[in-house]
C-alpha cells in the first residue's frame, strides 16, 4: 500500500506521521506540498498536525482551501482512507468532509499532555486493531480542540456509531475532556467510515522508545486493511 502525507505551511507533525507510517507499512509515504493539484495513486491520505497558516482566520480554514484539497475531497468521496490528526481534523471539518466545527478550548489554555480516551468504534479501518471500550493513552497538543456540532448532528454521530474516540478518565469514564468538546468527543468518522478526524496524536505514540505504542495500532491496522 502507498500513503501520502499532505504538507501545509505550518504543518509540524508531517515527519512524525511519515515515521509512524513507514514503521507500520514498510515504506515511506509520499510527501505532497499543499500547492500541488494532483495526488499519486494512494490508499491512505494523512492531513498532519501543526498550525497551518498560523491558524489565521480559523484553525484549518485556509488549509482547507489549499489547491490540493480539491483532490483530497474527491479521493475521500471516492472511498480512499483519509486520516486528519489535530490540525488535520480541523481541516477536515473546515473542508466539509466531517460535520461540526472545532472551537477554542473551553478553558482557553493550550493543552499539551497525554490523555486517556476510549475506543467507541472498533469496526473502522482505522480502529479495528483496538478493543471496543479499550482505554488508550494518546497525547494532545492544541489550543482549538473543542469539537462542536448541533444536537441533531451529535445524536446522529452517536446513533450511527460515528464517534470513534471519546475522552475519559483512566477507568474509561467520560466527563473530563481536556478542551470542553461536546460529549467528550475526541474523534469522529464520516458516514462511510473512510474519513477519521481526531485531536489526539497517534503518531506520537507509535514507537516504544518515544513514550508508548497505543497509536501504533492505528497505523498497523491501516497497513493490514489497505494492503
Amino acid at each position: 500500500m502507498t500513503a501520502a502525507v499532505i504538507v501545509f505551511p505550518g504543518s509540524n507533525c508531517d515527519r512524525d506521521a511519515a515515521v509512524a507510517i513507514e514503521q507500520a507499512m514498510g515504506k515511506p509515504p509520499v510527501m505532497v506540498w499543499h500547492r500541488e493539484t494532483a495526488l499519486p495513486d494512494v490508499d491512505l491520505i494523512v492531513l498532519p498536525g501543526g498550525f497551518s497558516f498560523g491558524d489565521y482566520l480559523r484553525a484549518g480554514a485556509l488549509a482547507a482551501r489549499s489547491p490540493i484539497m480539491g483532490e483530497v475531497v474527491a479521493r475521500a468521496n471516492a472511498g480512499v482512507a483519509v486520516l486528519g490528526i489535530c490540525n488535520g481534523f480541523q481541516i477536515l471539518t473546515e473542508s466539509g468532509l466531517l460535520p461540526g466545527a472545532i472551537l477554542r478550548n473551553a478553558g482557553l489554555n493550550f493543552v499539551c499532555r497525554t490523555v486517556p480516551m476510549r475506543v467507541e468504534n472498533n469496526r473502522s479501518k482505522f480502529t479495528d486493531q483496538y478493543e471496543l471500550d479499550e482505554v488508550v493513552h494518546i497525547p494532545v497538543a492544541h489550543h482549538d480542540g473543542n469539537y462542536r456540532a448541533g444536537p441533531d448532528t451529535l445524536d446522529r454521530l452517536e446513533g450511527e456509531g460515528l464517534v470513534a474516540f471519546r475522552y475519559c478518565d483512566d477507568a474509561g469514564e467520560p466527563g473530563d475532556s481536556p478542551n470542553g468538546a461536546a460529549r467528550d468527543i475526541a474523534g469522529i468518522l464520516n458516514d462511510t467510515g473512510n474519513v477519521l478526524g481526531m485531536m489526539p496524536h497517534p503518531e506520537r505514540v507509535a514507537d516504544p522508545q518515544l513514550g508508548g505504542t497505543d497509536g501504533a495500532k492505528m497505523f498497523e491496522g491501516l497497513a493490514k486493511v489497505l494492503a
Partner: peptide, 9 residues
C-alpha cells in the same frame, strides 16, 4: 460563505 465565515458556528 466560501471562506470568511464558518456557517456551522
Amino acid at each position: 460563505e466560501g471562506l470568511l465565515a464558518n456557517l456551522v458556528i
